[in-house]
Design a protein around this nucleic acid. Sequence first.
DNA 1: CAGTGAGCGAGCTTCCGCTTGACTT
Length: 781
Amino acid sequence: MKENLVIVESPAKAKTIEKFLGDKYKVLSSYGHIRDLKKKSFSVDEKTFEPQYEVPADKVKVVAQLKSQAEEAHTVWLASDEDREGEAISWHLYEVLGLKPEKTRRIVFHEITKSAILDAIEHPRQIDLNLVNAQQARRVLDRIVGFKLSPVLWRKVKPSLSAGRVQSVAVRLIVEREREIQNFRQEENYRITAVFRNDEGSEVKAELSRRFPTEEEAKAFLESCKESRFTVQDITTKPVKRTPPPPFTTSTLQQEAAHKLGFTVAQTMMVAQHLYESGRITYMRTDSVNLSKLCLAASKSVITEQMGKEYVKTRQYHTSSKGAQEAHEAIRPTYMDQQQIEGNQQERRLYDLIWKRTIASQIADAEMERTQVVISIEGKEETFQADGEIIKFDGFLRVYNDTHNDNYSEGDNDNENLSTLPVMKLGDSLDREQIIATQRFSQRPIRYNEASLVRKLEELGIGRPSTYATTITTIQQREYVEKGDKPGQERNYRTITLAGNEIAEESHSTVVGQERGKLLPTDTGIVVNDFLKENFPEIMDYNFTADIEKKFDEIAEGKIAWEGIVKEFYEDFEPQVEKSINTHTEHKVGERLLGNDPATGAPVTVKIGRFGPVAQLGSTDIKQKPRFAQLAAGQKLETITLAEALELFRLPRKLGMYEGEPITIGAGKYGPYIAHKGSYVSIPKGTDPMEITFEQAVIMMHRKHVEESERHLKTFSEDAEMEVLNGRYGPYIAYKGNNYRLPKALHEKAKELSYEECMQIVNEQSDKTTNTTKRRYTRSK
DNA sequence: CAGTGAGCGAGCTTCCGCTTGACTT
């Protein structure tokens, strides 16, 4: 038995702390919350708002262990995080473990260092019930919103859907961005650039101070420049500084890892978790940019040693993001003197990013000298401008290249990196080489990807570091949003070039607007969003969370009672729920009448059906049963036409009986197919499914069978899980649920590969990608 | 990259935020 039991939230933290405290202390972890509202039922009294808590099944063991240890200990130290949730965890522990006030202490620390922890032990306090109540208000309100709203959707749209304070607003952002893109009206203008030479023959690139709205005006301008003289009218140089970005928080780490390493949000968190557990980095779910004194000192000495004193600039950052709770430090390496670590490639790359970002934040500003040269055009008001920049002192840029990515649009000025300008002086005349007018188009807004959505949510103060990744998965699992690519579109643009005394016009073509891995709203997402916005505008308001957070703060300060806040909300909200559920409409939410079937006169509608977007032929009130057909890939509820919908009802067709079972031709998500005895054969794109005959179908099925039997190129007696298969893209190795590419050179002799050779390929390729990443986040269905 | 696919009046479903294992697909 130990005299003291310390309880923290995370086991990795427990391990570290135990080392600092010596053998009179035992440190255990609660693994987060140990008690929550009952899982299945509403569990909030609709009059008093009293919550009904339970210890969830997966926490029963932990709680039992903590309880027996607490009973034996002389003093129990509750050391959960110093924020709303952390305070509530301590309170729940206090209640569930049946602790006695005289043997319980509440402590907090902000750094996991020996001195910080010993100091915390010296300064215990009581559990802050006001803060706990703020958490209860938060928890109960989220339950009310989620468990009242979701059933409305089951009734009105489709079963198993969900709504919530965070997820519904996340979906709204994506739906609205898509609408902005649809409604975007492109504007065009002509941008004028020029190439000059100074008297030494060096090239000077410049841009005109204005753009022209039409081709005619641009051309007229070029025309008028034919005989012009160009003179250096003004030269200004000014020093410019660039400051390093602050150390990583969860959100900024997710953004940079997505941008620089191509990680998904979930992947980043997973790799960061590994780094945390192996003691490489500090806690990875944080909204704080604060660095410990230890880290500041260590960074300083690393920078001094590696780069010299002039690179040192110790900075402490302060969080500006909405609703930040700052229970932890920023995400940083535990030991700054470790520039590299052991581990797999993903771990090494993420660590490297974190190390560089942290060290950069402690390095001096980069200092630049920016030069702007104004070039006058004889007899004109417009001027050309040439910009140049030289780096006088690289500062933090030496280790970290800061990317400032715009969340909204790609912008229209493709500023190449500013370079050095050749030497010029006032009054110099420049030779005009050529002047080019280029047709430019305003850019439509860009869609969100995972990381930029997280950034937006954080900006609005919605969601927490521990939930960004799960929110993204939830809205995809509910099929409100899907990740996808948008192919670019070919766009033509014109240039007019004045070279010598000739004006030449040319047409060019370029592909613009290609997007990959973007979040796209589905029909279900759009219908649910519109319905919620119409019926529950307050919940869907982007400021709802921020406003309610202010009230939670007042609860935390002890100014108001938590039940009062919840009551105030509930009395306004609940009638809206009643109203929306009892409003009977003739048509389903989101239903669209496309027209009538010319053959029968029956109405053709589209809506969200039991299994997603569906077209319906006929209505339920006539004797004949209606027919249903799933919309094909690419067809949208909002845009599908009557003709397209009617086309869907031409399938399935029956071709006849074969080997005692019918052959049918159906249409699925992935296009038309032949179905027979539970097996399916895809119909290739160029073939019309309406034209296929019985005989052709039999041949196609036969061919598929042969291919199927040829698919297994080789199996091994050594290991049943290792196989060489023939796929659409040539032979490959399948091993334990994963597939491995075969080098081109081995394609020919795929059948002769030995077990060892296969194993070697598997090992080589599994180094590069961790298969566990995929598994963890596809687990729950 | 490595292969999918119906059905449209039961049943069940659902929130957010704190934290990690144990699944044998």
